[in-house]
C-alpha cells in the first residue's frame, strides 16, 4: 500500500511539474486515436485515412480547445458518410446538429464525453463511462453520454452492415434514409443502454456528494450494482438479447477502473491548475495554484460515553 501511495505521489508531482506538456500530449493522442478509429471503422473516404492528414488534424486539435476535437471528429465522420451515401451523412448531421445546437450551448465542457464514449465502446469498456462521469462530472453529463452512445451505435451499424451504396434516385435515397432512421430509432439495446447509463450517472453523482466517509467508494459500488440491475431489467422488459456475462464482467472491470480513478483523482483536481502573474510596487509574482479537492467532513454526534473495559475493571477494584 505504501508503494502505491509513493507511486501516486510521484505521478502527482510529475504531473504538477509538467502539466502543460502532458496536456498537449494527451490531447494529441486522444485526437489521433479518435480520428484513426473513425477511419478504421468507416474509412470510405481514403483521403481522410492517410497518416499525414491524421497527424495534421491531431496537431491542430492539440493547440485548440477540446471542443474543436469533437467538431473535427464530427467532420471526419460526415466526410466518410458522404462518400458512402449522402443520405447517411444527413442522419449523422441531424444527430450532430441536435447535439451542438440544443445541448452544447448550455454545457460546452461536456463535449469530451461525446468523444470518449464511442472510444470506450470500441475498446469494449463502455460500462466505465457512466461511473466515471458520475464521479468526475455531474448529472447533466447524461445528455452528452447519450449522444456519444447514439454516435457509437450509428457508426457500428453503418460499418457492420452490408449497406447498398447511395443512389441518385430520390425515392430510393429516401428509402435508405428511412431504413437507417428506423434501425436507429428501433434499436432497443441502444435505448436500454442509454436509460441504464443515465440512471447510473445520477446514482453515482448523488452518492459521491453525500457528506459521509468513503462516499466515493459507496458511489462506485452502488453505481456498478445499479448498472447491472438497470441493464437486466431493460433486457427483461424489451428482450434486447443482452449478454449477461458481458454485462457482469464489463461492470466488474468498470468498477475496478473507477477505483483507480478514485485513487488518482480523489485528493487533487488536476484539471484546474491555474497560472497567474501580477505585480505590485515591489515584486513581480508568478503564481501556480493547484487546487485541493475537499470533502465535507461528517458531523460526529456523541451518543454515548462509555469507559474502556480496563477502566471499568480498575473502577471495580477501587470500589
Amino acid at each position: 500500500m505504501t508503494t502505491l501511495l509513493e507511486i501516486r505521489e510521484a505521478i502527482r508531482n510529475f504531473y504538477t511539474r509538467n502539466e502543460t506538456w502532458i496536456t498537449y500530449v494527451w490531447k494529441f493522442l486522444l485526437a489521433f486515436f479518435a480520428l484513426w478509429l473513425i477511419g478504421h471503422k468507416l474509412g470510405y473516404l481514403t483521403a481522410l485515412t492517410g497518416l499525414p492528414i491524421l497527424l495534421m488534424a491531431s496537431l491542430l486539435c492539440t493547440i485548440m480547445p477540446p471542443n474543436f476535437t469533437v467538431v473535427i471528429c464530427a467532420g471526419f465522420i460526415l466526410g466518410h458518410l458522404y462518400k458512402l451515401a449522402p443520405q447517411y451523412m444527413i442522419v449523422a448531421l441531424v444527430v450532430f446538429l441536435l447535439m451542438f445546437l440544443l445541448y452544447f450551448r448550455f454545457s460546452p465542457r461536456d463535449t469530451i464525453a461525446v468523444m470518449l464514449t464511442p472510444i470506450c465502446v470500441y475498446l469494449r469498456i463502455p460500462y466505465v463511462m457512466p461511473i466515471a462521469l458520475g464521479l468526475l462530472a455531474g448529472p447533466t453529463s447524461v445528455v452528452s453520454l447519450s449522444f456519444g452512445l447514439i454516435v457509437a451505435y450509428l457508426i457500428s451499424y453503418i460499418s457492420g452492415s452490408a449497406l447498398v451504396l447511395g443512389s441518385t434516385d430520390i425515392e430510393e435515397s429516401a428509402a435508405q434514409f428511412q431504413l437507417l432512421m428506423t434501425e436507429l430509432l428501433d434499436n432497443r439495446l441502444m435505448w436500454v443502454t442509454i436509460a441504464a447509463f443515465a440512471v447510473t450517472v445520477v446514482v453515482v453523482y448523488l452518492l459521491r456528494k453525500l457528506p459521509v466517509d468513503h462516499s466515493w467508494t459507496i458511489a462506485i459500488l452502488a453505481g456498478g450494482v445499479t448498472q447491472i440491475v438497470s441493464l437486466l431489467i431493460g433486457d427483461l422488459l424489451l428482450s434486447t438479447n443482452l449478454s449477461i456475462l458481458s454485462v457482469l464482467l464489463g461492470t466488474l472491470l468498470a468498477v475496478g477502473m473507477a477505483f483507480l480513478i478514485e485513487f488518482f483523482v480523489f485528493n487533487l483536481d488536476y484539471t484546474r491548475i491555474e497560472r497567474v502573474q501580477f505585480e505590485d510596487d515591489e515584486y513581480y509574482y508568478y503564481v501556480k495554484a493547484v487546487p485541493k479537492m475537499t470533502v465535507t467532513a461528517p458531523d460526529r454526534k456523541v451518543k454515548q460515553i462509555s469507559r474502556s473495559p480496563r477502566e471499568r475493571e480498575t473502577a471495580g477494584d477501587r470500589s
Binding site: 443520405q87 444527413i90 446538429l97 440544443l102 429516401a174 434514409f177 428511412q178
Partner: peptide, 18 residues
Amino acid sequence: ATVVYLIFVAAWILYHLG
C-alpha cells in the same frame, strides 16, 4: 430551436417521402 425544428421537419419529410 427554430433551426433544429426545421431540421426535424426536413428529416420527417424525408422519412415519409414515399
